[in-house]
Nucleic acid binder design. Sequence first.
DNA 1: GCCGTTTTCGGCCCGACTGTTTTCAGTCG
Length: 578
Amino acid sequence: MPEYDNPSVAKILDTVGDLLEISGADKFRFLSYHKAAHALRAFPEEVMTLARDGRLTEVPGVGSKLAASIITLTQTGSFPELDAITDRLPGTLVDLTRIPGLGPKKVKVLYEQLDVTSVDALEAAIEEGRLAGLAGFGAKTIDNLAEGIVAYRRHSERRLMADVLPLAERIVAAMRDVAGVTDIAYAGSLRRRRDTVGDIDVVVASGDPESVMEAARTLPRVERVLVSGDTKTSIATADGLQIDVRVVSPDQYGAALQYFTGSAEHNSRLRELAKRSGLKVNEYGVFRLADDAAIASATEADVYTALGMDVPVPELRENAGEIEAALAGDLPGLLEGRDIRGDLHMHTVATDGKSTARQNRAKAAALGYEYIAITDHAVNLHMVGGLGLDALERQWEEIDELNSTGDGPHVLKGVELNIDDDGQVDYDLDVLARFDIVLASLHSGWGQSREVATRRVLRAMDNPFIDVIAHLTGRILCRRDPIDLDIEAVMQKAAQTGTALELNSYPDRLDLSDVHLRMAKRTGVAITLGTDSHDAAQLDYMSYGVGQARRGWIEPGDVLNTLPLHELRLRLKRARSL
DNA sequence: GCCGTTTTCGGCCCGACTGTTTTCAGTCG
């Protein structure tokens, strides 16, 4: 029987939705596929389990028909609606809609009139002048399509949130000084702290919108102005990042910030609810439908209050249950940076780090931590000089000396073991028992089957002295896919054995994902946060982990390193054996 | 295709900008 995870099924649903739209199907019909896809990506249970238990309709937006089709998919490997639509339309047409400026309607014309089914074919058709005279394709449109193909080829990927954030902050700082500006912030997925982002959205409140638009068009790194009107300007930077700047009047700033923070699905749901209450929500405020009277607009809190709900923090706004919780006054009290009492994953010069244990401890003191764990690689990870027993003894002496000074964060003796292909690790139990905390993680085998990879992790969790599985899936954002694991089996084993799962806060990992964090919380698995720092300065990466934890609905009580040191020790798995 | 404390049928979120099909459709967010 084929195995599917939620993203792979969601991708099929999106493809069907896109093809239905190109085919000219009813708007609400193709939107329902995208809605279900989004909900499935955010749903904290696995689609295979839901299908097996007949609970697929618990996913919002999945009704009896889609549930039946998904069950067929999991049993036969084919999705009936996809087969039906690809009989009529080539599936590759979906690629064409990724070209900026080219949507489903024009793709349909290109296919039906010119038999264009791919980006390469479109490029050839443009070069041969075959688009000339086609209804709806004027000279300007054809020029824009040629440019759109270049943009599509140059980059279509998302970027690390951590790589984009500094630029967003510089733009905000620069535009704050423009004449008439009273408020400014970046919004969008950056404000929601998604692990990757596709563009930068900036919301500006100003009594002088023209000056703001001019400033946006002349930002330092602008390569091209994509669109620019009275209230909205979009520009592209030299490396292909899009920046959207939107200006509203100062009394509408809260509504605009809410609107442009999104997500699209969150906003769409809000507007549906508002309509049922006789209200309308847009980027200018909340309005009564009956007489168009403005109800709220100045602050985000005003907007949500007018809709009768608490204010969900940006990290939660994915239409993944936060609206129901906000309506019920039942939003979680999420983890905050100040809750973290220590960093439980870092490397030193003893292996592949650049800072000493002492330097890491000094940085931790500056962050106000009560403790840190030094967790260098163990002996089997030869390529980074993993520590043998002699080197280990020397590091422990160094740590003892640091701790003997009394003041400053306590340094825990830790290690990051390597889980080998059989689920075995670097040291024997008698050595492992001598550490304060032991992490273990996968460093190879990325192409392994789900069965093999899952077995490795489950075996490691049977080890009584492995307290934490670090960076569970091994994903590197924008570079390496997560290893294929039976996540539910991992979660259940973690809960059963008392093994914690790490939220690795290094910005290109952020592993566990937000959805996996919600699964862990549901299953009662304890979470630790660690930066995986290879340089003392990287202890600052904890803020990325905190943002991700908040997206995963994690509260302080779910996280072991919010505990004082003596309580942390009691909660680690080894406390059961020692 | 989904969904229900006004509905099991008839609804289903909102607006800016561009180019062209000159009164609006297509695209995007």
